[in-house]
Design a protein around this nucleic acid. Structure first.
Lengths: 194, 194
DNA sequence: ATTATTTCTTAACCTACATCAAGTGCCCCC
DNA sequence: GGGGGCACTTGATGTAGGTTAAGAAATAAT
């Protein structure tokens, strides 16, 4: 069980005693997900936050026309959940699927609430975590309103350099909001212009 | 000073003693902003979260071509800040401007940090506040990727019914991501189809 | 190693929305 | 109350990205 990674992630924002670490880690469950398997399916109620220790997940929605739209990727050291469903405990719209064999540590909403009571530092930790997510989400919203697809792709490469090597092109295309065809064309034009 | 409104806002998520209320309210400053005046200008460092007690603010960015893109509105009972700049204490991209004469209560980042230490319940309050913001931001992101402008406008009317009566059309257009010309045309076509 | 499936590439054609421009209507301010 | 400026409307034209389709290349499965 690779608890070191999650303890380091937590230690970015809060200091836990050894005892507190034990309390925290006792609340976690390990889960392995094979490539193409789902951690969460749209219409389900999201009961866990997941912390990725190896592999890669993607969160995506499917629109009326059956087109998939990637909301987020989660490589190692990242958290992922359907936030709407997790908070409201209502059926959500997000599918969370493994892009490759993946291992996660699951923290249930119930255990998360217990953590807040037993170790209030976790209020602080998750506030900061969500604040940073909000900043990234708003930045992406602004990008979608004001930048061309090329500019969005450039930003993606700058912000998440470690992701681009292993992510399939069609997933990157979906994340920046264009079709695979357009993405392919755009990239070859960018290369011609070098 | 209309402290009742903000105390009610806080009471949605946390219970404060009378003493705690006094500590909290002592940290607030009142500010009046005339229509068209700025609370924050892009390039500045955001030092406050603002709670609107009357009037209406809008947060927007300006792109390379000089086009404004509305990120958020803040009518009464809403919080607003440039989250990136507030968290990082680096110059931000958001302008916050009054759409009408507005009154806000300001909570500085420094005071906010003090609050967390003196009344840790505020960690809980702001975590929930930011979580809800994240959900709304992600939903808007997904809408922008998967819906037509009409559908986005319909969602806007459903989610924020109290906003549409008083907001100028061009601001709504900017929020849903279309030009004023297209918005005007789209609306008259929707009316024809009734 | 071979086959099946998926991903990527490329070309032709299409479309939701943008841009430009000008006129009308409305609101704000003096 | 009136003038000026801004918001809204409308028409013509343009464009960033989508759709359709087919072939090539790469990857997965056996």
């Amino acid at each position: 069980m690779p608890l070191n990674l999650i303890l380091q992630n937590i230690a970015k924002h809060i200091n836990l005693t050894k005892e507190e670490q034990d309390v925290f880690t006792a609340y976690l469950q390990t889960k392995k997900i094979k490539r193409k398997q789902f951690l969460l399916t749209d219409g389900d109620i999201c009961k866990y936050s997941a912390f990725v220790t190896s592999g890669c997940l993607r969160g995506y929605t499917v629109d009326k026309g059956g087109i998939e739209h990637v909301l987020n990727f989660a490589p190692p050291d990242w958290w992922i959940a359907d936030m709407y469903s997790l908070l409201s405990q209502k059926p959500g719209m997000l599918n969370i699927e493994a892009l490759e064999d993946t291992e996660v540590l699951l923290l249930s909403k119930a255990n998360q609430e217990k953590l807040y009571l037993e170790i209030p530092k976790f209020e602080h930790f998750f506030r900061i975590l969500v604040e940073n997510s909000l900043v990234a989400s708003q930045q992406r919203l602004i990008d979608g309103l004001s930048l061309t697809a090329e500019e969005r792709y450039n930003n993606f490469c700058k912000r998440y350099p470690t992701l681009i090597d292993n992510l399939p092109q069609k997933q990157i295309a979906s994340y920046i909001g264009v079709t695979p065809e357009f993405f392919s064309r755009m990239r070859s034009e960018m290369i011609k212009r070098r």
